[in-house]
Design a protein around this nucleic acid. Structure first.
Length: 587
DNA sequence: CGGTTTTGACCAGCGC
DNA sequence: GCGCTGGTCAAAACCG
């Protein structure tokens, strides 16, 4: 075995399921089935690397799932080898993937696989099982479960053990008559030791079988989930295409405004914010307090809600104390605040909320209400609702966290919007001038109908993006220079103005709620607003469609950042192809 | 009766 | 260390 390599090589002969072939990665080469199913695995790991029983690996690709079962060999190479000695034959299907996904990086191992202790990888001297340093194992990708295969291997081993046991017993009978034969005794002891070893090995295989069974079941469920997600994604691919076009138009416009300077690469390298919410966020009673997930999407009332917010926090972010220098946990938290005109006590955003607190915030006589999502137990999403101190008709709703449960369509629109805004903020939450432009661009991308309705702020402790639905989305406004459309109080960006001086145009009618289909006020309020909306110029269909498409795309892809990165990448083209490293293995 | 709201208490972070 | 503030908790009250 070449211990210096960095790849896993597996060769499999036998029936290959069409499903596997459909989902296989490009690095999987399948050939027609030939002999009995055999999987040949080579482990080019460095000698000091540890074997694990990677029952759980972060990657979720289908081919990866198949590979997960390769941990079978970790426990008992001897048994497999003895089995293979009797079975013979090797592979036709070649699976060749990069090692880091499975073995080279121990960080991929979430667990140790059900209690089986890790052990040091056998040295080259111990790799005598196969001349090539590889390990063979019977496998079938379609007709049999891994549990069945392990059962078969175990059964074969048992047969060998029984055979040897019979041999030992026969020898014992023969040797009883010659008690003085010391040589016979030695042989008997050796055979007994062999028998004990076989029994021990069988016990290991028994344990292995149970683990494989459970692992197989878990992976089966995972595969079903992935297949479902993939189908769902395909259904939305056409809509996502529209988003790409919208983004392309935005990029072109921005490039013109900025003298042809393309958007910075940093924007494409979506950071932790790119990781979308997962039910595995394992929401506890208050998860966001102890260790907020990287994608934690927070929100914060804007300056009108809490004057201390900007005066105390934003202004004190000096260029010497940049957001980069701030604690990482701080930058991981983003807050999305939505300003909408509503007389209702709370916007009907499609989710069920439970009020858990109310406070009178400083500088605002209107109480601030705290709500927690109750659509699922342990959902970490919370929101605050407070009326604007300057204009009581404006209801400021801010969202925090990511839902750990499916959302109704009405809630999905809002969730998509806030997620997009948070992704915009987090992916652009940097201190360089490029970073400011990134946020600017992202804001206009996420909300192409009215770039002036998005305000990005990195004010500590949480960066904030405010979506102002109270402004006139007149497309003419978007003809202003982008620098005048957005306010970026990033400390070192050189563009620090009065923090969070959102160009509110209070008293205007809410006409751009179409940007948030499903984000409605209460029915009575919506009815009350309807005549006003009719009196206003309608949102140009193209813009509304663009927003709708963006929302749909975001909704279809739980990892908005990845989708956004892919879209931007396709827009910018080959001449500007930043690496999108994080988007491939995230599901 | 279960879920929600109310409301005072409590806690942590931050600035002085 | 102290006070202020935002945010959360939890018991009691309320509601359908």
């Amino acid at each position: 075995m070449d211990a210096s390599g960095g790849r896993i090589e597996a060769r499999v002969a036998g029936p290959v399921s069409p499903d596997v072939g459909a989902d296989a990665q490009p690095d999987v080469i399948a050939t027609p089935p030939t002999t009995s199913p055999v999987l040949l695995i080579a482990f080019p790991l460095s000698p000091d690397q540890e074997f694990g029983t990677a029952a759980h690996v972060s990657s979720a690709s289908v081919s990866s799932l198949l590979f997960l079962q390769l941990n079978l060999h970790f426990v008992s190479c001897d048994s497999i080898q003895s089995y293979m000695d009797r079975r013979g034959g090797a592979g036709a299907l070649t699976l060749d993937t990069s090692a880091p996904l499975f073995l080279a990086s121990s960080s991929n191992y979430v667990g140790s696989g059900g209690g089986v202790p890790k052990r040091k990888r056998p040295t080259d001297s111990s790799d005598h099982h196969l001349g090539t340093g590889a390990i063979e194992f019977p496998i079938s990708l379609s007709t049999r479960s891994h549990a069945e295969m392990a059962e078969e291997a175990l059964g074969g081993n048992r047969a060998v053990a029984d055979e040897k046991k019979n041999t030992i017993e026969t020898s014992m009978v023969e040797q009883v008559d010659d008690e003085d034969d010391k040589e016979g005794r030695n042989e008997l002891a050796a055979m007994q030791a062999e028998l004990a070893r076989m029994n021990e090995e069988n016990q290991k295989l028994t344990v292995l079988l149970s683990q494989v069974t459970s692992s197989y079941s878990a992976l089966e469920m995972r595969l079903a989930t992935l297949t479902r997600q993939r189908n769902q994604r395909n259904d939305e691919s056409s809509k996502a295409h529209e988003v790409v076009e919208v983004m392309g138009a935005k990029v072109d416009a921005m490039n013109r405004d900025h003298g042809g300077v393309i958007f910075p690469r940093r924007f494409m390298e979506l950071g932790p914010a790119a990781e979308e919410d997962e039910p595995s966020n394992s929401s506890t009673a208050s998860p966001e307090r102890s260790s907020p997930p990287p994608d934690n999407l927070l929100y914060k009332d804007d300056e009108n809600l809490d004057p201390s917010w900007n005066t105390n926090k934003a202004l004190e972010l000096t260029p010497t104390k940049t957001a980069e220098q701030a604690p990482e946990a701080t930058m991981r938290k983003a807050r999305v605040s939505v300003r909408a005109r509503s007389e209702a006590p709370m916007l009907a955003d499609g989710c069920r909320w439970r009020k858990y607190g109310q406070k009178i915030a400083k500088g605002n006589p209107c109480p601030r209400a705290y709500y927690r999502c109750t659509m699922a137990t342990g959902c970490p999403v919370r929101k605050q609702v407070q009326r604007c101190a300057d204009d009581r008709s404006i209801l400021i709703t801010t969202y925090e966290g990511n839902h750990n449960h499916p959302l109704p369509p009405a809630a999905m629109a809002m969730k998509s919007t806030t997620s997009a805004a948070a992704s915009m903020l987090l992916s652009g939450s940097m201190t360089s001038a490029n970073g400011l432009m990134s946020s600017n661009f992202l804001a206009s991308t996420v909300l192409p109908c009215s770039s002036s309705m998005a305000t990005v702020s990195a004010a500590a402790p949480f960066p904030t993006v405010t979506l102002d639905l109270t402004q006139d989305p007149n497309p003419l406004l978007s003809q202003r220079p982008p620098a005048a459309q957005f306010h970026f109080p990033f400390p070192s960006g050189g563009a620090l103005t009065q923090p969070r001086s959102l160009p509110h145009v209070h008293g205007q009618k809410l006409v751009n709620q179409s940007a948030f289909s499903g984000f409605q006020t209460s029915p009575q309020i919506a009815a009350a607003q309807l005549p006003q909306q009719r009196a206003q110029p309608a949102v140009p269909p193209s813009l509304a469609e663009a927003v709708s498409a963006a929302t749909a795309a975001i909704t279809s892809d739980p990892n908005f950042a990845a989708a956004l990165a892919a879209a931007i990448k396709s827009v910018i083209g080959a001449g500007h192809q930043p690496p999108v490293n994080n988007s491939d293995n995230i599901l």
